[in-house]
Computed example of a mutant assay.
Amino acid sequence: MIERADQLVLNYVSKAADAAHGVLRPDQRLDFARRLRARIEQERHGSQNARDVAKVLARFGDPVALVEREARRLAEAAAAERREAPDAGKPAPEEPGSTRRFPAIVDDRDAPPGVRTYRRIAQERVGESPGRGLPFAGLRRAAMFSANPMATGGRDARTIVKEHPRETAAMVILVVAALLVPFDLPLLAIFPIPLVVWAGGAVIVLFSASWQPRDRFLGVGAPLLGYTLGGVLVGGLRVGSAPGLEVFLTQFWSVSGTMFMIGTGVGVAWLAYRLLDVS
């Protein structure tokens, strides 16, 4: 979570620095990025919550607009210095939207105490859970591949995939392992190929820090649980009154692969759900 919050800040400052390329001199561009980062950290108050950080960045507005205002401020400051050469030691006057201290944020503006209190309550209610009350609002927000991370709190699918490539690859590998089950593939040494592929994905999941230990074990254990317990239960039901271990094993092998696929689907869905953190 900490990496994701910091990444939002870095992405925002990088966009501003890219927009300043060719508009500001290198030294001006560096100073602008440094002051912007410092102001964001000041408004962030040390928060490591990605949703809170995204709201702070949204209050700063479009990075391109910040660059335009900075360029305008620098141009007017230079013009003022040329006009007032005798008073060169005086600081150049700043326009109301100057980015020397960066744009005023809603919370910074003077307002009666009552207004500030109700404004804060309203912002907290709006920001706690965007789309609350709408069915599957979190899932719809996560599926917004082209969404602005600041509008989705960093929870759109494109941002998740970009920031968690290893975890995404692990889930894809698990799905591939399940899809290989129906094919009559040769053994790799003494192991079925789907099992080898699943083991590779399971190792990545188990060593990932993006999930809690419980979630990791549930994600990789669901296919095994489906294969064993599901195969025993469904195979036993299909045996019916027919006696004999051979009949049971025949039914077990016929359904265990399907149960492994179902378990994999459940496990990957759980891992994806926990990674998206839409609850």
Rank of each mutant, 00 (worst) to 15 (best):
D108T: 08
V53P: 11
M150P: 06
R83T: 14
V126H: 08
P91T: 03
A151E: 15
A157V: 14
R69P: 07
S146G: 13
D62K: 05
D31F: 01
P93Y: 01
A111W: 04
A78K: 04
P103W: 07
E124D: 09
V56C: 08
D107W: 10
M150G: 04
M150R: 10
V67I: 00
R51Y: 14
P103R: 11
L134Y: 11
E43L: 14
A71M: 07
A104I: 08
L74G: 07
P96L: 00
R51M: 13
I105W: 09
A142P: 07
I121C: 13
G138P: 09
A54Y: 08
A50K: 05
M150V: 02
P112M: 01
E68N: 12
F102R: 08
G131S: 03
P96I: 03
A79Y: 01
G127Q: 05
F145K: 05
E94F: 01
D110R: 11
H45W: 10
K90H: 10
P113S: 13
G46C: 08
R44A: 01
I121V: 12
P86M: 09
G89W: 15
E70Y: 03
A92V: 01
F32E: 11
P86D: 12
R155M: 07
Q42W: 12
S146K: 14
A85R: 12
G89I: 02
A147K: 04
R34S: 09
I160L: 08
E41H: 03
A122F: 03
A137E: 09
L66Q: 10
R132Q: 12
G131W: 02
N49Q: 08
A50P: 12
A143P: 09
A75H: 14
P135E: 13
F145S: 15
G138N: 07
F32H: 09
E41K: 01
L36K: 00
I105M: 15
P63F: 00
H45Y: 11
G154I: 00
E84V: 04
R116D: 14
F60R: 03
Q123Y: 15
A38Y: 06
V53N: 10
